[in-house]
Each structure stands twice: as C-alpha cells, then as structure tokens.
Design a protein around this nucleic acid. Structure first.
Lengths: 206, 206
DNA sequence: AGAATGACCGACTCGTCGGTTTGTAGTATT
DNA sequence: AATACTACAAACCGACGAGTCGGTCATTCT
C-alpha cells in the first residue's frame, strides 16, 4: 500500500513538473489541461482522478514546486553570515544567469504569474502573494542582520532596500526576455553593486 | 465625405479605448471580442468591418494608444533642461501615483503585455519591444545630457543607469498590485532618490 | 429618383477547453 | 475464487470564442 501511494505521487509529480513548465512557457489560461496530458501521454481521466480542477492543480504546483524553488534560489543563498551585499550579489547574479540561458528562474515565474492572475483570480493571487511576502520578509531580516553585524549602514531603510532589490530584479527579468540578456545582466549587476555599495557601512567595526 | 471618415474614426477610437481597458484588466487572451462589443453595444459585424482580426486590432491599439501614452508619461516629462535626477524623480513619482489610485499607468501596462505575449506572439512582441527601445534610448540620452550639463557624474554608465531605473520601475509596479501600494511607492521613491544621488556630479560646474 | 456605398446587425460555423461519465486492466483484500 | 479498489482510458457534453456571411438601413452621388 506504500507502493500504491508511491505510484500516485509519482504521477502527480510528473503532472506538476510538466504543468509548471507549460504554464510558464505559454501562460496558465493559454495552456489547456490536454496540452499537459498529451505531453505525458495521459488522459483526462487520470488528471481528474488526481485533481479536482485545473485551479486546484495549479495551487498544488505553487505549494509544491514554486515555494521550494523560490526558497532554494532566492532565500537560502542570502542566509549566510558573510558580507551581506556580497551574498545578495552572488544570489541574484546566479538567479539571472539561469535567465540568460532561457531556463526558468523562479523570481520571474512569480512575476509572470502575478501579472497574469492579478485582478482575475483572487484565490491564486493570495498564494502567489504569500510567496512574495516570504521573500520580502526574509530579505528585510537579512539586511537588518547586516546592519547589526556591521556590514550595512545603520541608517539604511531595510524595507526600502529590500523592495528596491526585489523590484529591480523582477523588472530586469522582463527586460531581459527579448534584448541582449547577457549584456543587460552585466549592466544590471554593475548598478546593483553600486547601489549596495552606497548602503554599506563606511566605518566597519574592526 | 469628411463626415464619413469622422464617424469611422470615432467608432474605431471607441473600440480601441475600451479594448485597451479590458485587455489591461483581464489580459488579451482572457478578453473576448464580444466582451468589448457588449460594453459598447456594438456587434461582431462592426468589429470585423473595421479590423481584420483581434490581433490586428491589438496592434493598432499599441500604435495609437500605448505609444503615445508612454511618450507623454515616461519620455516627455524627463526632457527638460533642469537637474536630471529631479526630472526623473518627478516623472516616476507621478507615474506611480496613478498606480496607487489603480489607474492605468502605461509603464506597467507595457510590462504586463510583455509577460503575456513573450514567447507566444512574436509579431506583437516586436511592437511592444519597439516601445521599450524608444523608452530606453530616450532615457539613456537624457542621462548622457545630464553628464554633459554637469548634473550627473561623468563616470556613470548611462545605459546601466537607464536599465536600472526602468527595471526597478517595472518591478515595483508588479509589487504594488496587491500590497500597500502607497507605502511601497514611498519606500521605492526614497531608494530611487538615494540611487540617483549616488550618481550625481559631486563637483558641479559653477 | 435610383444606384451605390459606408456602417452595422445577428445568426451561424467550427474549433477549443474545462469538466463528466462510463468502462476496464491490474492489484490487493477477504 | 470472488470482491473491491486503484489508476487510469476514451468517449462525450456544454460553453464559449474567433471569424464569416447574408442582409439592412441611412447617407451620398449621379
């Protein structure tokens, strides 16, 4: 009976992975359940045996895949105890690198879905916003800690800095989709570095 | 015979204005031609008398409405000869204010459509990208001029700064859609001010 | 007045998509 | 061996949406 459950979960997992891939590529409303099923060579019956609806399916994708990916790509990497702005730089440099190679980076996936569901599906929006909040809260606390540990200027506004970083990151991803992603990444990172330098603590505790 | 043309253009204009409104609110693929027609109390026949297809209709909206709005909201306001960063601040402060009141601001409209059409409709993407390019080229040249006129540090990377401003603006609009738009606008503008201060010319020519 | 044309109506086609229902091969249970 | 349940398959339903088409009616031209 553990075997049973394993099979069930394997199929659901396959559906979710392919689902996220297609939803990301074509948009949620532009991807039919059949598109996903065809790719997996499964039938409608299989889908509605495991999920209540397309919406339910998508929410499970958010909870199972999106949340974890955002965690591992945008949250965990900045949680070390080294110099705060170095950590942030490395994290976002890395995240943008996946974008250059046209892979899914999950900060952008998030931004895409938010603009797709905003004002259209409050239920899904709530789940997406929860992820944004987790990201934001974490970034704020990382910056706060940077202040305590002497890396960041004590006068810096942690909420403001976090918002600015998140905004510029999500925005540059939109601008990288068509034109010279690699050059734009480089330019963007240079400016982000300047910005982070400007809020570093000038008289670090020795 | 001029009367004729006037009637034609009036109807087409009404369709486009309502079309943009609904496309913005619900997305392009999520808005049916009938939705627009019902709101205007017009029929399918009227629509396909004036436009070849839904796509043709949308492209005309871009050329007639979007381009001009971006011009008047994001390009013209920064073209004065006062202090460059002041002009930029005022322009984006103003653009975000419309966002706070849930109106259409056209930087965001642009970002929304880009993420909706990216990878799905190359033809429309081309038109949207053209607007982005116009915006970018203009912002770069404004910063260049700011350097010549002594407002901006000569060592600043104009392309980088422009990209950073555009990115952060488009990004913060996404983050303003659900949570505390007014507070986020304030925080964002503070950080933008800091960033612009950091590239101002420290020894202005007297 | 009669013909032509511009602007529009509304019914219809044809395809798509979310969701339902019925059936069934394999596996586990009793 | 009979039963029941899991994990699907396949056919189907109703809606909705883009685009078509024959027709209408007022205005303009001749």
């Amino acid at each position: 009976m553990m075997q049973k459950n394993l099979k069930r979960m394997a199929t659901m997992q396959r559906m979710q992975v392919t689902g996220l891939e297609l939803f990301y590529k074509n948009g949620y409303y532009n991807t039919s359940v059949d598109d996903i099923l065809n790719k997996l060579e499964l039938s409608k019956g299989a889908f509605y045996y495991h999920y209540e609806s397309k919406e339910d399916f998508f929410i499970q994708i958010i909870e199972n895949l999106l949340v974890r990916k955002v965690y591992s790509m945008l949250i965990e990497p900045v949680e070390g105890h080294e110099n705060t702005s170095d950590l942030i730089m490395q994290c976002y440099d890395n995240a943008l690198e996946t974008a250059v190679h046209n892979e899914m980076d999950f900060g952008f996936v998030l931004g895409n879905f938010i603009s797709e569901f905003n004002g259209r599906n409050p239920k899904i929006m709530k789940h997406l916003n929860d992820i944004i909040k987790i990201w934001e809260v974490n970034l704020v606390s990382v910056i706060q800690r940077g202040k305590f540990e002497g890396y960041i200027d004590r006068h810096a506004d942690a909420e403001g800095v976090a918002l600015f970083i998140m905004s510029s990151f999500m925005g540059v991803r939109t601008l990288m989709v068509e034109t010279a992603p690699s050059a734009r990444k480089y330019r963007f990172m240079s400016q982000l570095r300047l910005f982070l330098k400007s809020i570093e603590n000038k008289q670090p505790a020795v």
